[in-house]
Design a binder for these strands. Structure first.
Lengths: 204, 204
DNA sequence: AATTAGTTAATGAACGACCATTCACTTATA
DNA sequence: TATAAGTGAATGGTCGTTCATTAACTAATT
């Protein structure tokens, strides 16, 4: 008979397995049986650790969003950081989380929100709003400092940069031409130029 | 008793209804009952016009992809069109199709591919490849002409621009601050600058 | 113009499969 | 011995799809 594991261990196992399956196959296409199968026990046992399928999804999305926001939260109000450098840090962190380890081709994030209860959805969206606010603050400071072009819209710019990163999950392949670091470099340059701050590096 | 409609009419009705529902709720989350309900008949009747749910999805994705690619296909090899102008045409067409009329918040396109049979998926991907090839050709010509920066990667640039547009479905609201035309203008400028061609317009 | 035959849109009922979840239970561990 | 990990079986539901049948249209025939 299989040995018993403790609560925390099994919760993390379920989250790790579910995360992989959700990102790979999609939320609706992943069954509790799938998850339990990979974990090595029966579906019913999942309910000893989570109240239901949705709560698993929420926990995954929430943690991921926290990982994206928390490391850059200090950039929002810190006037001492160069906006260009702040932009780089923001992109670097986001891309690394998006393309690192996991390797998946689905946009769980954009799509999974609709599978959450309104209350849970709100919590995720609040974090997404934080992310946007950080980006907007950086762009604003950059414009004020004369580094970025004044005619770019803060919000759309941040959405655009976020979109470039989020959707790289679809086309990126670890076996491809570029490393994650090179992609970060490209996206940073593209975003910086897009913001009108391209004068930093010459045209090559 | 409800009057009978002819074949072509009902096929188009089913496609229109399904398209709206798929984009709004997602493919897996939309049932044949949902579709039939909106159409005004019973689910079984759908099978008089389509072989199954997947064939409806395919038809929708295929048509949309054709709409995106065909109007800009001529830009691929036409050396006479200014690369900057070609870029604008490409973005304009794509954004208009993405944000025009439909109004939906899901990324059916990125996600729905996995619900297709391998054969059908291949047909869609072929069109997506065409789109990429057109974009790459434009960027290459722009670099050759000295308008775009030489250090940008053609492919990633096209992916990035496409991502900005595709994902605008999520955040765009017709009731929001900007019109579709203004968003086109922003994205064009952002993309152009990102490509290193920002010198076209001064910094404001 | 009336009748008929053929076609096909539309239906109701049923199919098997799978789904998330519940619950009484067993069993291992601390 | 108390706690909690793990199970088997069952529940009610939904899903996509099939199929025999009905009813409304079209076109040819009388």
């Amino acid at each position: 008979m299989a040995e018993r594991k403790n609560r925390a261990t099994q919760q993390e196992l379920i989250l790790a397995v579910s995360s992989r399956l959700f990102w790979e196959k999609g939320y609706a296409e992943t069954s509790m049986k799938d998850i339990a199968g990979v974990c090595g026990f029966r579906p019913a046992n999942i309910y000893n650790f989570f109240t239901g399928k949705e709560s698993i999804l929420f926990e995954i999305l929430y943690r991921e969003m926290v990982d994206i926001v928390v490391p850059i939260a200090h950039l929002k109000d810190d006037e001492s950081v160069n906006p260009v450098e702040a932009l780089r840090l923001m992109i670097e962190n986001h891309v690394k989380l998006t393309l690192g380890e996991k390797r998946s081709s689905k946009l769980l994030f954009d799509v999974g929100l609709n599978n959450l209860s309104p209350a849970n959805r709100k919590k995720i969206i609040r974090l997404r709003d934080d992310y946007d606010a950080i980006g907007v603050a950086i762009v604003r400071r950059g414009k004020k400092a004369g580094i970025f072009a004044k005619d770019v819209d803060d919000k759309i710019a941040v959405f655009s940069i976020g979109s470039i990163i989020a959707r790289s999950r679809i086309w990126y392949s670890p076996k491809g031409k570029y490393s994650v670091d090179e992609i970060i470099e490209f996206m940073f340059r593209f975003a910086l130029r897009g913001l009108g701050g391209g004068a930093v590096f010459g045209k090559r």
